[in-house]
């Protein structure tokens, strides 16, 4: 099991048949984005139709897990008991994803030191044997 950053009581992911492959890949510590096989447009969160060309055909593209902070907030109110405060929610611009961003957390950094444009990389947190969540941490200089 990996390092733990958040308590078990945090909200758990909800998935339907379309988004489940994201979470299955996550359990193997692989970060993937949905990609339209007709026009190659990438999208996240996953959806049944390509918003660009309306194709229903899609596959999953693995990305590096590197990126940069697009925006961020340090939250001073707990979501779950035993949570370390403040905790950082950030939007990460994902390298090699066709311009996608995702919401996640920044860990291993003083919340006051977070800056927009900071280089980050994925760090997987195993919440249980079959659930891993992608968090991000600054790329070591």
């Amino acid at each position: 099991m990996s390092d733990r950053f958040f308590p078990d009581g945090m909200p758990q992911p909800l998935a339907d048949a379309i988004s489940l492959p994201f979470w299955e890949a996550a359990s193997e510590h692989r970060l993937v984005v949905q990609r339209c096989t007709a026009c190659e447009h990438t999208r996240l969160p996953p959806s049944p139709l390509c918003p660009e060309c309306r194709s229903e055909d899609a596959d999953w593209q693995e990305i590096s897990g590197r990126g940069e902070v697009y925006t961020h907030t340090a939250v001073h109110r707990p979501i779950a008991g035993g949570q370390e405060l403040p905790f950082v929610i950030a939007v990460i611009a994902l390298e090699g994803s066709g311009g996608l961003r995702m919401i996640s957390n920044l860990v291993g950094v003083d919340p006051g030191e977070v800056t927009i444009g900071m280089s980050v990389e994925v760090v997987w947190e195993d919440m249980s044997a079959d659930l891993a969540l992608p968090r991000f941490r600054p790329v070591p200089q």
């Binding site: 909200p11 758990q12 992911p13 957390n105």
Partner: peptide, 10 residues
């Protein structure tokens, strides 16, 4: 399912 991409991060 879309909120699955926000809620786990608080």
């Amino acid at each position: 399912a879309s909120m699955g991409f926000t809620m786990p991060y608080g």
